[in-house]
């Protein structure tokens, strides 16, 4: 609870109670011409602290550090991660993101903007997003992928903490490849979501949802073959140089397992 207490204090000091908090993190990797990716921009604040961590040879690796519990209702968080031409960037996080109800009414917003420029590579694979009961969070993730660039994007969403009812979560994921729309998908679940979200077409009682998007230039010519990964996950080629794995699972742990397996199968 220490982080929560610190956060409440921080709120009292710096943020009017009824507007929520605004925070942004910016990450930009650039190739130095000798095969090493540097981080000329690495900025975070409040609940979005960023830290450089050890990556694979030549790769820049960054962890989002959950400095406080966020987002709360009314908050607006933005993360921008860019891999400049030829750069290799890997972004992870040190802990799950927990959406909680907040004092200000209204939803929290969490916006992720990813840019993978020409011949660059970006892996975006933060820990789970947990939608706690009573919270309302709107997530948008937009990725722009340039010519020859490679993207791995992994999202895991968990509805409610253990044994808890879900919060309200909407998540829209848009991927563009060289300006052309490759994937546009929105998921809405929890109280207030349009009817049937938890029915036999939607989640059918499953509480963890995962997506893995892979963009690789070679997938345009040689699309992956659609197939099942067990009963509740499928890999499918997108209409362009990419693939998508969609998975649902009873809980976060089993979702993690099936997505780990998927990474092995599709060669993340």
């Amino acid at each position: 609870m220490g982080a929560g207490a610190a956060r409440r204090l921080d709120r009292r000091v710096s943020v009017p109670v009824d507007t929520g908090l605004r925070a942004a993190a910016r990450i930009r990797a650039e190739a130095d011409g000798r095969g090493i990716s540097r981080l000329p921009v690495l900025e975070g604040e409040g609940p979005l602290a960023v830290r450089r961590i050890r990556g694979a040879a030549g790769q820049a690796r960054v962890a989002l550090v959950g400095a406080m519990s966020a987002p709360l209702g009314g908050d607006r968080l933005t993360v921008t991660a860019e891999a400049g031409p030829g750069a290799r960037l890997d972004v992870t996080s040190t802990a799950a993101t927990l959406a909680l109800p907040g004092r200000p009414k209204g939803p929290a917003h969490y916006d992720v903007r990813l840019s993978v420029e020409e011949d660059a590579e970006l892996n975006w694979a933060p820990e789970q997003l947990i939608s706690a009961y009573g919270s309302e969070l709107r997530v948008t993730t937009r990725a722009e992928v340039g010519a020859g660039a490679r993207l791995l994007l992994r999202e895991e969403q968990v509805l409610g903490r253990a044994g808890e009812q879900p919060g309200t979560l909407t998540s829209r994921l848009t991927v563009r490849c060289e300006g052309r729309l490759l994937l546009d998908q929105e998921l809405a679940c929890g109280p207030g979501a349009p009817g049937g979200w938890d029915g036999p077409a939607g989640l059918a009682g499953h509480r963890a949802i995962g997506q893995l998007v892979l963009v690789r230039p070679e997938l345009g010519q040689h699309p992956v073959r659609a197939r099942m990964l067990g009963e509740l996950a499928a890999v499918t080629p997108l209409a362009g140089p990419g693939l998508l794995v969609t998975a649902v699972a009873p809980d976060a742990l089993r979702l993690r397992r099936v997505l780990d397996e998927a990474v092995g199968v599709v060669g993340g």
Partner: peptide
């Protein structure tokens, strides 16, 4: 632009469609 159009999805419809096609 066309981004104004909804993009709502149902996970088990997408997963079930691939299972069915096989």
């Amino acid at each position: 632009g066309v981004d104004a159009l909804p993009a709502s999805s149902a996970p088990l419809l997408d997963i079930g469609a691939e299972a069915h096609a096989a």
